[in-house]
Nucleic acid binder design. Structure first.
Lengths: 229, 229
DNA sequence: TGCCGTGATCTGTGATCACACTTAGGCTCG
DNA sequence: CGAGCCTAAGTGTGATCACAGATCACGGCA
């Protein structure tokens, strides 16, 4: 095979798209606290570009409601009220629960294998004596989205990504602040029930397990009392 | 009442936001055909501004997947394949069906009155000897979103708007092309069942009626055979 | 007559400048 | 010594310019 054949895509990523994904990852990872203000020029300087790519990134994230512009035109990470958080949780249970149910019906072998791997990685981190929180949360995220992708409905995955983008800041900020959650919580129990239901094609079982998982972490967040009233 | 009181919103709408809503309405109304290419400069000239607001509008719509950039960097209205259309329809039935079920449980008097009004307006247009298609479709849209808003889950309404934005071009293009659909179809029958279920708080009935309505219009679109293979 | 090379034009992207507005800090005056 | 104004720095928004790449049509060569 000539070397010309392995050139592949040039990965023509525009600067604006790169800036968008950088900011996006920061938000999902909870590295930008709710209420924190952003400046286009500061952001551009940190990215090593002009303000234009930063503008596009912020503009898209505002459209996703992952950032908000105040009446002063200032840009900041939205501060979720308790009511908004509960609303998002209800929507998540409905949408992600549906995705899990569909995944159970459409599950194929390789998808199930990937899910098993992510589940094992998560449980390994939970049971470790010195758990790496960031790696554990990434395993959790990979597990969830492997399930959602298995439903075979790409537009649904996009919708769920938008939901995670909005709850990311409060969710991951609090989960990182206390390492108890990872070890104590029923997360791995829910995951086990979820994986079992997926393996047997039990759609309603998968939906129930995922709903319990979401509700469990949401309850934990509420107990921290860090949400705005 | 002094005239100062009726100023209302300062309409602090940024040019980019105005451009976004203009393009958005054009897409939902199906006035931009699938596959049609857009030019930032042409768009800017039509809006009477520079390319900057047009850029922001297009950028946001691309993020919503309501527009797409080809590998050539050209921007066009996406051409839905039959598979993508069916996928979106399944997601719509799940998400909008959930919204209808929640609306039935949370329904209040004034919301129900508004829904009744939109339903009457739609039926009036269907039964008219000389139906105004555009007005009928607007009544249909108002009816649906009045139901979704009644669920009391704003983030769900945003999600559904995104779905309508994607199917708008093919849906409304075909519905306008044949006036039969409005008159023949079971739309008003499904609407009647939907409104009745909402009035009695029958969540599952509302979900079923809405699902049938969506499936019915989707079937009609498929019979036109205008979708890409 | 058919086909390929080539240049003009149009595309989106990024940088830079200009402007209205907000905000915070320092300075002056009571 | 304290409070209010007022300047200066910083904000997002919009316009304009510069540039690489794609597209398409015309003309010349085989």
């Amino acid at each position: 095979m000539g070397s010309i054949a392995r050139i592949g895509r040039v990965a023509h990523a525009t600067l604006g798209a790169q800036a968008y994904e950088s900011l996006r990852d920061l938000l999902i990872a909870g590295e930008l606290a709710p209420g924190e203000r952003l400046s286009l020029r500061t952001l551009a300087e940190r990215l090593g570009t002009s303000v234009m790519p930063a503008r596009e990134a912020v503009s898209r994230l505002v459209a996703d409601e992952a950032l908000e512009v105040l009446p002063n035109r200032a840009v900041r990470v939205p501060v979720l009220t308790l009511g908004t958080f509960r609303e998002l949780t209800r929507v998540r249970i409905a949408v992600e629960g549906f995705a899990a149910a569909e995944a159970a019906r459409a599950m194929e072998a390789d998808g199930l294998a990937a899910i098993h791997a992510h589940d094992a990685a998560f449980r390994r981190e939970v049971l470790a004596s010195e758990p790496d929180l960031e790696r554990g949360m990434r395993a959790n995220r990979d597990l969830h989205f492997a399930v959602y992708r298995a439903a075979g409905l790409p537009s649904l995955v996009t919708i769920i990504e938008g939901l995670w983008l909005r709850i990311g800041p409060v969710l991951n900020l609090d989960l990182r602040s206390s390492r108890r959650r990872l070890a104590e919580g029923g997360a791995q129990v829910h995951h086990a029930r979820l994986v079992a239901a997926l393996a047997t094609g039990d759609g309603e079982g998968a939906r129930a397990a995922l709903a319990a998982d979401i509700a469990g972490s949401a309850d934990f967040i509420e107990t921290t009392g860090r949400l705005a009233p």
